[in-house]
């Protein structure tokens, strides 16, 4: 009887702990935290906004459609431990660099005025400059970007 009660307690606790582990996800990370900032009047959210799991040394690459005659505001965010986010925007065809956040004080926000519809590649990594290496080697975090757009004033 004693053994059975131990087993039951252990199974319950094991299930409980697994629920916590499996519920860990970066879904909708871009919809809260530092990504969720008021973009300004007239902006609409773009459904291509995304979040993902990331570790130091990883690189995420997204192919994103940007429509012509629009102004886009891109906001990047990550788990505090992994700041700053390093992102590079490049042309989807030529891969020429359009914007590199490293050369712009690791700004988390960039505005793009797009004349004609194009595909832009977004490469994201995290640098974790203020975190101890031991910590960043052992952990994954979340990274996300939120896209907003409004018609471009001509």
């Amino acid at each position: 009887m004693k053994k059975l009660s131990y087993i039951l307690v252990f199974v319950f606790l094991a299930i409980f702990s697994n629920i916590e582990v499996f519920s860990q996800s970066c879904n909708k990370f871009h919809l809260y935290g530092s990504c969720m900032q008021y973009p300004g009047p007239s902006y609409k959210m773009d459904g291509q906004s995304r979040s993902n799991v990331i570790g130091v040394g990883d690189k995420l690459v997204y192919s994103v459609i940007f429509y012509g005659d629009r102004n886009y505001k891109l906001i990047f965010c990550t788990t505090d431990l992994f700041k700053p986010v390093h992102y590079i925007l490049s042309d989807g065809v030529t891969r020429e660099v359009i914007f590199d956040s490293e050369k712009n004080d690791f700004t988390e926000i960039v505005e793009l005025n797009i004349e004609t519809t194009r595909r832009i590649m977004i490469e994201i990594s995290v640098l974790a400059t203020n975190a101890e290496e031991e910590l960043t080697e052992d952990y994954f975090g979340c990274v996300g970007f939120l896209l907003h757009w409004k018609p471009l004033k001509k």
Partner: peptide, 15 residues
């Protein structure tokens, strides 16, 4: 879209 050794791209789609 996670790349360490080789580049793979996550292709996003407008709704």
């Amino acid at each position: 879209g996670h790349t360490s050794d080789q580049e793979s791209v996550l292709f996003l789609l407008p709704s």
